[in-house]
Structures are given as C-alpha cells and as structure tokens.
Design a protein around this nucleic acid. Structure first.
Lengths: 229, 229, 229, 229
DNA sequence: AATGAATGAGCCTTCATTCAT
DNA sequence: TATGAATGAAGGCTCATTCAT
C-alpha cells in the first residue's frame, strides 16, 4: 500500500507525474531533492537488511521487500549490491572522522577531549545505528578498492584516539605507564560494542556516554594501581 | 587445477580412481585415531573459513579446499553447514562459562576476581581464536534452537561479570555510583574486541590482559566522580 | 558397458562367494543356502523400499537401514542398484508366466480357466506383494536390456488372457461381440490394481478373487445387454 | 553444446546477451496473455516429464529442456519441484470429482449413471493424459499436506462409485450379492489402467468406454451366481 | 521510475559407487 | 562379510543481475 503511491504508470502512457522531466524542467531542485529522498530510503533499507543479516546473508529481494518494490527496481538506485554496501559503509563513517579530528585538536584538556571523542563515537548509533553496525561488521566484504579507502578512516580514528591519549600522558592528566595503542583499542572496543546492544538495553546514549567516559577517565587518570594499595 | 583433472570417464563402469586416492595421507600408523583427529581438523577448517568470510560468505568448497579434500567428503563429517557452524560455536564457548563461574565464585576480592575473569575471557583467543571469533560474530545465524541454547551462555557470562561488579560495589572495592550492567557490557565489549585485532597488533595476550585489567580496575576503584570535576 | 555384470572381481581376487564357486568347493550347498538366505533378505528389503518409494525415490541407504547394515555392505550382495531392481522385478514375475500358461492350456472350459488365471494373477500379492508392486510400477526404469526381457513376459501374459477369452468366445461360453484385447486389458487392470490397495481394504485374496471372477464371468457370458431388456 | 556457448564475459559490467535472448519467441503480439499461457506450458511440460520418468526420476533440467528455457527460469513459474507436482496433480483431478458427483446424483437409472461415471473417468485421459497419469501414480510423493488434500478427492470418487452401485443393488438393477466396495475398486482399477496403455493400443476412448461399460454392467446385472454353476 | 521475465553462476546437499581393510 | 572413508556427478534451489518496456 505504501508503494502504490506513484501511479505505477505501467501501461497507459500516463505522463508519469511528479519528479520533473529529464531536461532541466520546471524544478531541478525539487527533482533532486525527491530523488535523494527516495535514494535515502533505499540506502536505509539496505543498511537495515545488511545490519540484520550481514552482507552475504542479505538478499536484494529482502531489501526490495522492505521498500515494497520489486527486486529489479533496486537497480535503478544502485548498480550492484556491492555498491550498496559501499554507500552504506560510507554513510556509516561520514563525518565521523572530521568530527573526531575537530574534537581532538580542539580546546580543552586531554581528558575532556577524550570524553568528547567517546561521546561523538557513540552518538551516531542513535540515528544511524544500522549504518554504523554495517560499517563496523561488514566493511570487510567491500571490494578491495573501497575497503582500503574506508579502512584508512578507521585507522585514522584509532590514531586520533591514540594521539589524545598520548597528549594526556605527556600533560600528566593520564598516568605514564599506559600503552596508548592498546588503550585506544580498548576504548574503541568498548564504544563500538554499544552498536551491538544499543536498543536492547534500556540506557540512553547520553547515559552510556557518561558512564563510559567516567569509567575510562578514572582508569586513565589514577595514580596507578600500586599507588592505591 | 580444480576439477578438470579427470575426464569424468563416462559413467558407470570404468571409474578411474587415480588422481590422489582417498587417503593420500602421510602416516599409515596414525590411521587409528584418524576419525577423531580428522573431525577436529574439519572443525578447525570450518572455524577458520567462517571466521574469515562469515557464515554466509563461506562456502563448503572453501572449507574443503583448505583440507585438501573434495567438497562432498565434508558431508561425511557433518550433516550440514549449519551444524558445522553450531559445532564451531559450541567449541567457541566450551568451558568459557564454567571457567568464568569458577573464577567468579572463587577466592580473592572482587577486583582480583574481575581481573581473572577478564584474562580468562581473553585467553582462549590465543589458541582458539577462530572459534571465538565465529562465536562472537556468527552465532546469530544459527538455527533458532541452537541459537537460543548458545545464547543462554552469553547472557550467563554477562551476568557473571555483573555479579562480581556488584559484589565489588558492595564491598567498597569499587565505587558505588556504577551501573553494573553497563559496566559489564563495557568490559565485555573491550575484551571481545580483542578477537578482532589480536594478531594484527604486536601485543601478547598477557600484556593485553594486564593492561586492560589495570585500566578497568582503576576506573572502577577510582577516586570517585567528584575527583573528576 | 552398463552393468559390469561379469565377475566384478575388482581387486582382491576374492573367489566370489555365492553362485556356486567355479569348481565345486567344500560345501557348495551350504554356502549356497546361507548366501541365499541372506541374499533373499537383501532382495526383500530392496523390494520393500522400491515398492514404497519407487526406484528413483529409494536410496541404498534406506535399504541398508532396513537390514541394519551399512550402505557399503549392500554392494557385497548386488553390484548396482539397477541390478537390484532387476532382481526384484524378476522375482516379481517369476513363475507367473509358467503358471499362467499351465492354467491356460490346462483342463476346464474357458470360464473356469479364466477364473483360474485371475486367481493366479492375484494370489502372489499375498506373499510377494512388494515384488509384484515393483514389477508393475517400476520395471520401466530398468536398463533397456532387462526391461525388454521383462517386458516380453508382460506381453506374454496379456496374450494368454486374450487367448483364453478368444477361446471362450469361440466356444460360446463368452458372448461374441467382445474385443478380446480390450477385455484382457480390462481384466488385467482390475487385478493389477489389487496390488495397490491390498492390505488397506479388509478383504482376503480369496474373496477378492471370487468376487472379481464372478463379476467378470457374468459380464463375459451374458446374452449381452440388449437381450436383457 | 549446452552452456559453454557464451564465454561468461567475466562478471560485472560487460554481459553478453547474445545467444537467444530471453524471449526469442515468435509472436510479439501474443505477448499479452503470455504469463498465463506460459504458466500452462510449464505445467504441461512438468506433467509430461513426471508422467514419463516419475517424480523422483524427473529432473527440473529435463522439464526446462522440453520448454527450451534454462533450468533456473523454471523457478520463475513455480517455487519448487514439489509444488510443480502438486499443481499437476491438482489439474489431474480438477473437475473430476464435481463431474462425477453431478453424474451420480443426476437422472437415469443406476446402470446408466455408472456407465456415465466410467466414461467420465476415462475421458480426461484423452486431453489430459499426463496429468491423470501423474495424479494416479505420483501423488504419493506429494508433501503430506497436499497429499492429504488430494487424497480426499480420490476417496470421494471411490465412494461415489460405491454409492451408485449400492443404489443399483437396492433398485434391483444390479444383483444383490455384490460387495459394493470391492466392485467399485474393480471398476476403478479397470478404468485407471487405461491411462497406462492408452495411446499404445489402437482403441478410441469412446470404444474403450463402451466396451468396459458393457462388460461391467452385464457382470453386475447378470443372472446371478447360481447361473455360473 | 519501475517491472516482468529470464538467466548464468554457484551453492548446499544427496547419492550410488569404490576400495582398502 | 562387512565397513569406514571418500568421491564424482548430479540435482534442486537461490541470487545478483540484465534488458526490453
């Protein structure tokens, strides 16, 4: 029922309504926007199905089902399943990196910046959970070219976390006996895991962010374990 | 190099056994326990392929290739790909739960027990990495029955962590304003993530265990929230 | 090229047991009997499974299951599934033809002989039901050579029925406006059908035989339908 | 000659439609009802192959061959081989039951009605022989659900025959010492058998129907058993 | 913008058969 | 006599993708 929206046009060459004609007709902007809207819905559906079933477990049929269109129609929006994955993955990290970089090189002492990074890392799960999940668990199935491209961003993120940790160690905000690399991985593991259970636990993104930041910051700051004995 | 080898030899009648007999294996003496050994090898190969490609991305052909046997031969050892996944998953958690329970209810103060749990959680990655990875990321594709069975163990593990955290809060070893559930999930996220990068980073399981335990324990113990402000 | 009928002997020049060794060894009779007993059980099992599932629906595994032996062991008793079918089919008509011929050319007037034929045709269903069923419905799947051989017997049987009917017409026992061929096929259809429901209906072979004979004989004899009006 | 035709054209991209496009069909005009027509042709082909080889002996490849389409294309028309069998079986009895019921409860004395039933039972063999044959010999291989559904019709038919026979006995048209059940089975056996040899014998459906009816009716009417002694 | 029809490629699984023991 | 291990050859079915409309 959703789908019947557009007259279907099948037979009866019925002018085919909305969506602006081929050549810069009346409203190009409108056309673009509406195309984009639909394209966004397609990618949303793909993200959801990929997130649920995994790239290889997903079928174009399942994606089409969710959109209430026919399977063949998908190919109007993307040229291949792989490209669909690529798009989902790209949107899964879109902005991530820039945001992180801005926070990392922004104002505030290392602890605050690290807390900011963590919150920024968790928050997209709220409104783009499926995209993030797909990026985290399915990007390995991208064709080589795009996997490497996307991989760069991941590694970049890790380094941003690492850098802030290093700065905190240098500044004395964090204790000096940390392994910055392992620590970054620990934090990222913790935050990434949120994507796998968020929605099943009743905790808001804000609470999770706060809790995690507190936990980690205290761990990093402390006078070290022996000091406490 | 794959199949073209033998010209098929028509049908009934002729047969041409040639081309590497059934068991071109090395040691005739070792043939006795071979059934068991072989079964183990089969599961190992399945674990490896499932870990690399995911359950749906894996093909029985790839598993057979790794074993240097024909694909059909796999079915002498397991009745279906799904069962193979189930076996891998079961071995992925085998002992996990019991070990964790023993540690949790064993001697020592909560911090020590929690550190023990973390180390015990990470250590199987060393010798059963593929099994653990498959369990962590592919168990969702098990048929309903076994997924539920296996799921119980996961949830059990979470509760063990949670319990020890609660005990630590009560005993005063950990600060009192923690959310035990979220904290458990944070720790498990951190440790589970190890499976995804162990081997790519040059850090031993021991060092990782130590580092993570320190990080977390200090975070839990901490000077409390006010110290942060 | 098909069946390898000849000695099979493959490896291990193993004497080839059954079927009376080349030279009259120690106890040919004993060997024969025991081999035969077992061989009979094997054929029974095959007949049963073929009857239930059809030749193509049957698997050697199912036959082995019924015998509580392993699938590979079957091949000690027959060289191929096709040969097993052939044996079952042969036993399905064994004696049939000779018996029928004896009855047809025996004493008695045509009606009695036809009744005898019908009874003889139905009776093997009692003790060899599966063999008969397989012969009737699965012989089409025999390899060409044996199918033709077996087919001869079927056609022979039809002709025997036809012949007796013709004799009855000539002798005046049956009315003269019959089509002997169609009549024979009608009778055979009726009697063959018994194999498909005998055991599900509560009627003994004797009663069926009597009832059918009465029905048919009265139909054949009568003064014809118009006479009765 | 089968598949090697097109060099596969690598993967994504190129594609080489050549080699008889999707629909190298004859008439473009006829394309409108093609879906329905095509579906009918598919079922026809399935019926033919099932009739010839049996359900288990048939392969979807053979069905596709007969239609000159690729095997995978079959699955555009039915979701599984089992469903194809179900459809064939359903068409094999379609109308059968209703027609029979109409005749049985229609006008005419029992003998005429029985003769009508027999003719109606034989006649579909003319234009739907394969469907009928498949229904008669392969319905046992239907999945449980549909087998039971279809089985009801068979049993219903038997009862219709039985009922008319009973009525004839009561009315005095048939003699009183019949076993109505066995008699019905005898008649059905006779008429069903036609499906197995019709086309090989040179007799028209009409002649067969007439001959059989005469044979049976006289048998049922007959001078009674004593006359036989 | 969407779809019906079709297809190539491949996957999981079954099965008859072999062979050394 | 019998079996464990293995395999070649299909067979049913799925799926991404194409293409004309």
């Amino acid at each position: 029922m959703k789908s019947k929206a557009a007259p279907a046009a099948t037979a009866r060459g019925g002018k085919k309504p909305g969506k602006a004609g081929p050549r810069g007709g009346p409203s190009v902007m409108a056309a673009k926007r509406s195309t984009h809207r639909r394209a966004g819905e397609i990618t949303d559906a793909a993200a959801q199905v990929f997130a649920e079933l995994g790239y290889h477990g997903a079928t174009t049929q399942k994606i089409a089902d969710r959109l209430q269109i026919r399977q063949a129609s998908l190919y109007y929006y993307f040229p291949s399943k792989e490209v669909a994955l690529e798009r989902v993955c790209l949107q899964g990290v879109a902005g991530f990196f820039e945001t992180a970089q801005a926070i990392a090189s922004g104002p505030g002492r290392p602890p605050e910046r690290l807390a900011g990074l963590m919150r920024a890392h968790i928050s997209p799960i709220l409104d783009r959970g499926n995209y993030v999940r797909v990026f985290l668990t399915q990007r390995q199935f991208l064709p080589n070219a795009s996997r490497r491209r996307v991989g760069k961003w991941s590694r970049g993120l890790e380094q941003i976390f690492e850098k802030v940790i290093r700065e905190g160690m240098r500044s004395g905000d964090f204790r000096g006996d940390l392994d910055p690399r392992l620590t970054a991985l620990a934090i990222l593991g913790m935050t990434n895991a949120v994507a796998s259970w968020y929605g099943k636990e009743n905790a808001s993104i804000e609470r999770i962010g706060g809790e995690f930041a507190a936990l980690v910051l205290d761990g990093l700051k402390g006078p070290g374990r022996k000091a406490r004995r």
